[in-house]
Design a binder for these strands. Sequence first.
RNA 1: GCCGGAGUGGCGGAAUGGCAGACGCGACGGAUUCAAAAUCCGUUGCCCGAAAGGGCGUGUGGGUUCAAGUCCCACCUCCGGCACCA
Length: 1076
Amino acid sequence: MPDQPISTASSPADERQPGVPPFRYTARLANEIELAWQDRWAAAGVHHAPNPVGDLSAGFDAAAGRPKAYILDMFPYPSGRGLHVGHPLGYIATDIFARYKRMTGFTVLHAMGYDAFGLPAEQYAVQTGTHPRITTEQNIESMRGQLRRLGLGHDDRRSVATTDVTFYRWTQWIFLQIYNSWYDDRAGRARPIADLVAEFESGALEPISAANPERKPWADLDDLTRRRVVDSWRLAYLDEQPVNWCPMLGTVLANEEVTADGRSERGNYPVYRRPLKQWVLRITAYAERLLRDLDLVDWPEPVKLMQRNWIGRSEGARLRFAVEQTRDAIEVFTTRPDTIFGATYMVLAPEHHLVSAITPEAWPKGTPESWKGASPASSPRDAVAEYRAAAAAKSDVQRQAETKEKTGVFTGSHAINPATGERVPIFIADYVLMGYGTGAIMAVPGHDERDFEFAEAFGLPIRDVVYPAPIAAAAWFLAHTPDADAFPLGWELAIADFVALATGAGYDAARYPELLDVVRTRRAPVGEDAIPVALPAIDQPGGVGERRGAVQAVWIETLGDIIALGFERAREVFAAGKFWRTRGAPYTEPGVAVNSPAIDGLRTNEAKRRAVEHLESLGAGTGAVTYKLRDWLFSRQRYWGEPFPIVFDEHDLPVALPESMLPVELPDLDNFQPEATEDPDAPPRPPLGRASDWAAVTLDLGGGPKSYRRELNTMPQWAGSCWYYLRYLDPTNEREFCDPAVERHWMLGQISNTAGLCGGVDLYVGGVEHAVLHLLYARFWHKALYDLGHVSTVEPFQKLYNQGYILAPAYTDSRGVYVEASEVEERDGGFYHRGEPVRREFGKMGKSLKNSVTPDEICAEFGADTLRLYEMYMGPLDQSKPWNPRDIVGMHRFLQRLWRVMIDEETGASRVVEAAADDTTRRLLHKTIAGVRADCESLQFNTAIAKLNEFTNHLTRTRADSSCPREVAENLILLAAPFVPHIADELWRRVGHDTPGVVLEAFPVADPALLVEDTIELAVQALGKVRCRITVPADAGEDAIREAALADERVRQALAGRTVRKVIVVPGRLVNIVAS
RNA sequence: GCCGGAGUGGCGGAAUGGCAGACGCGACGGAUUCAAAAUCCGUUGCCCGAAAGGGCGUGUGGGUUCAAGUCCCACCUCCGGCACCA
């Protein structure tokens, strides 16, 4: 576009600094270039990605046949404070990657939206009365401007905000999909709710439900009960859940919003645990799939691990203990059924539903006073009631804070241990949680720390039924060789025997009749002459008794692990009692069962299996799996969120609105505050309750108009972020949340065989703080949509990448209060704020540390390209690194050199000539191409930039006549284009091209022939040091290299008087001469 | 407590088991300038030495290897996650 110059042909003199050439790449020039190109990209729609069908399909034919790349950022909350330089770190990275992908032949989807529902806008509204929609829209607008300034190549037609009615209409629609389905465990997937009714009708499924306590057949249920039964099977259901209820704020609070002393972080009002009827999503139905499918995705291992831990699968057994004197049975979950022989009491969570049923009127004879509660109470009922009330008053946080002290009361009842037939007392205690397992445990104080502490406090029997194999072994060994030092030759063998015995592998009662007796009678025989004990495992092969090196290690196989024994070290550890059960802690690791008639001598894994079999044969339980994951509490007493598409009828039962009545729009309000009250038992009155015209409606939902009242809660902030990546695909679709053909195009792409690949977003970049919640919730919704046939991939995000944080210096004054970092001066190694000395620390950039730096100020000072480059150059993308303003200039100078290589600073004319590059330059160029490509593929932008810098430095140092061969200039521009798109486009234009964006060009490809050198330099090491370097032909043989190395004068000197014992030639690397 | 991740010059950081410190900042010296800023060129891990050269060096201690920042074991420090999960 020569007639339309992008940047000024000459600069007004008054804007320039004297002495600076008019066409030097300064901040002023950078800003001109950048703004002009941003306009041109937008005008030409350079970043538009074509869909196969629908509104956005223009240009699809040209792109058809290319592989797709869907590159996604975790979208921001549009805060009123705007962005600081930490925010765009990930956005810049994805932009570079997206541009790189386009230039290497992909059709790329890259868009940006706003997660705009949420508390800050609502709180601002409460304070000022400004409608959150207004603040939100203003914030989005200013953030858009900030992002545009960075040159991010987003398809702006696809930008969505979760608060748009056209967006949340489909959030509500997805909620209805979830509401109108149930999880079929037999099929392992969600199915439409109509199928469930059919299953009940045909008798294929029993209508089991709390709403049908007598388990009547479906045919015998009335309509209302049928509705209640079906509702209790849905993936979205109403449930009474204990929540943090703050009556003064009129809302429930997340655990993070409650302080350690049980008050609200905001306002310091009391917070109560209180059951409230809430919407809950049945994410637990997906626990197994959410766990299993982590194997399909390319995610950082720590994130997968965090999700696995969060889901918390444990395998074990559900066992039933009959309660004496009542017909009840208490079901417990345990991961160690093999320890049931050591279960000497039971504990129920205070909220357990059986508590009142099993609590008798009077204490049994001989009940210790300490079991009767703090007072102590005169009857079990009083003691239990008192304890339950105290437990209910505590928040989760408080419960955790008091984690050390074990408290509880005796219920007055006993149960029968099904394995031993013994009577065991039943307690209630708050160390047993209602939300996990069955809310009840069998307590095995010999092998569980918590039970042990409780047993110590209440004087309950502690019985060992498992011993660690090496200890069982040691006990035996001691019995036979009381003095280990008297065993200098045979000890290895003895241990070998012994371990075989202990592990059950070579258990031979006839050969070692004493073993069990020894174990039973010699508990914890710690002594000076004790035998070595196991140190943690290594998976290294090695026979029993193998000696290794100076440390006389013995490798012993125990329990399927290989355990290292360093004799002296182990004796030390052993003597210190670290691995030994003395009178202290219980033994909690796997070991060998003892004192357990049905399973004696077995190692834990086998013992668990056999114990379950044994208990099954007694009718006392079955094997079972439990998860830590809880169902997802989905209601919030807030205004600024998605309304539920749900109304309640005259029976107070929920009714889903039909799709045709969507969207359910948020009503306008003047006052956004929930109604506060001091009465903790008053029902919550969410802000939507104020919209009385809205809350009470008359609708015809079939069968004529009737009165309904709307659900007044709103959805949590996570709702929109669960599916926004699907709306980017087809943002303007009014008929569907996303067209299936579009969805397949971008999510499935060319994957025809999904084995081993789950498809989905090709690269998802965001912070680790979302490792669990957002990513788990989104996976859950995606799987539900998959089950119902709305999406084609089982997982939403194929590859996940966590960018690090940008840290910045923060300063505290003498009171420990943060001061504005931008006002701090550095003098003589000290830091001062308004004359006062302050202390420096480093922390995450943000408002709380008063250390934010905005991208706008950096753009003004250096330009966006410099900022982009600096953020990528700071270090590896996934690491946290400190923001150092001093370093930025290095990247600016690099761009100045890049510019100067091709442009005359005085005239602005191109220095590109049609001559060929010299051989060295060409080789270095192709090496750079290969390197930058490899680095881009693996998101190692810091080293890619270093390579570009290195090549540019080579050019500035070698060009004698200040001209630049075209081949060099153009390749360099293309290589730099993804990183610094504005200057690249400007240079591309100035060297004679006319396109709306260099991103449309092809990325350079290295010529393999130029990557191979004719001669290579090898380092020669002698006696462990580099003595010299030799240059040899690249194809030199080992013999020739060896000779050349040995012939070198310096090598000969170093080797003088020594015998060469070995020469190692590593082709292409070095030569190492070993001599003695 | 349990589970992860990370420790390399003055600073940010490079380094398929094969020449530690690429590249950038800073510092020092020089060019330009009346001067400064900006820009450009050169030097720069530490110690000894005028130099040539030598010694020491990737948190600590061991091990494997011809060769370890990189692999193995133990320990120390920092950061993150979970936390009475039976």
